[in-house]
Every structure is written in structure tokens, then in C-alpha cells.
């Protein structure tokens, strides 16, 4: 229980770092670390398969996407960095205090939740649920991957630019 709280605090700290850091590249890397911490939390919350997905796809693939994009766009970003620096500090100075204050306020209020939880699930294997009970979502995944493929074909192809 206590360990969970430490991990959660680390998650918030990393997220704040992600948002407040000056360098875009460091922001992307910190995002990957935040995501890794979240996958540890998922593992502790008894969802190992989802944790593996989070670790491999979000920490790996999305970071690679962001970092390569930043690499592609870097030359123009550099010039603006200095101007943005002052701007950013002014805007993000108060964010940690807002966030911590909000968390403490929520903790004090400690919303009285009284819900009747449903019965525990009979089927406990995520793979069975995925393939036998929710085939529609699998079809959905296939369709959205195809739509991503066409998005990449249309958006990233430079040859037909005017």
C-alpha cells in the first residue's frame, strides 16, 4: 500500500518534469519514464498483460515516434527555444503548487463513495475475454490499424506535395 503511494508520487513528479522541462527532447524522454512507472503500477494492480503492452508500446513505440519527430523538426525548434523559455517559466511556475494543492484538497474532502460493487468475474484470463467474448474489439483494432496505415500513406508521403 505504502509502496503504491511512493510510486504514485514518483509518477506525478515525472509528469511535472515532462511538462515543465525546457528541452523538447527531454520532455519526450520523461514521458517515456512516466509511462514506464505507470506500467509498474499496472503490474502491481494485477494486470500483467496490460502492463507489458504499456511498457512495450507506450514506453517504446510512442517515445520513438516523438523522439524521431523532434529529431526531424529540431533545426527550427532551436531558434525559438530561448524566446519560449521565459514564457514557459511564467506560465508553468505555479503548476506544481496547483497540482499539490488540488491533491490535498481532494484528499481532505475524501469523497464519500458508497457503491455496490458487482460480482467478481467468472472468466479470469484476459486472452479468453479478448478472443472469445470481445471479437468485435479485435475487428476494431484491425480496422483502426488499417486506417492508421492509410493515414501514414497519405500524410507522410512527400512526393505529391504541391
Amino acid at each position: 500500500m505504502n509502496l503504491n503511494i511512493f510510486i504514485l508520487i514518483a509518477m506525478i513528479a515525472l509528469a511535472l518534469w515532462t511538462v515543465m522541462t525546457r528541452s523538447l527532447l527531454r520532455a519526450a524522454i520523461m514521458l517515456a519514464f512516466t509511462s514506464a512507472i505507470i506500467s509498474i503500477l499496472m503490474f502491481r494492480l494485477n494486470s500483467p498483460i496490460a502492463a507489458v503492452f504499456e511498457l512495450s508500446v507506450c514506453t517504446g513505440l510512442v517515445s520513438v515516434l516523438f523522439i524521431s519527430t523532434i529529431g526531424l523538426t529540431h533545426p527550427s525548434v532551436k531558434e525559438e527555444t530561448f524566446e519560449h523559455m521565459v514564457d514557459r517559466l511564467r506560465k508553468f511556475k505555479f503548476l506544481p503548487f496547483i497540482i499539490i494543492g488540488m491533491g490535498m484538497a481532494l484528499g481532505l474532502v475524501a469523497v464519500k463513495i458508497n457503491l455496490q460493487l458487482p460480482l467478481a468475474e467468472i472468466e479470469t484470463d484476459a486472452r479468453t475475454v479478448m478472443w472469445n467474448l470481445r471479437p468485435l474489439d479485435i475487428i476494431g483494432q484491425v480496422i483502426i490499424l488499417l486506417s492508421g496505415v492509410f493515414g501514414v500513406i497519405i500524410l507522410f508521403k512527400e512526393s505529391d506535395k504541391k
Binding site: 499496472m42 496490460a50 507506450c58 484476459a126
Partner: peptide, 15 residues
């Protein structure tokens, strides 16, 4: 205690 269902949802969501 619906880990199986939520894991399936999370996987779809990550994709």
C-alpha cells in the same frame, strides 16, 4: 476484480 475485461479494454485502447 474484473482484471481480465479491463486488460482487454486497455490493450485495445493502447492500440
Amino acid at each position: 476484480k474484473h482484471n481480465a475485461l479491463t486488460q482487454a479494454m486497455v490493450i485495445t485502447f493502447i492500440v
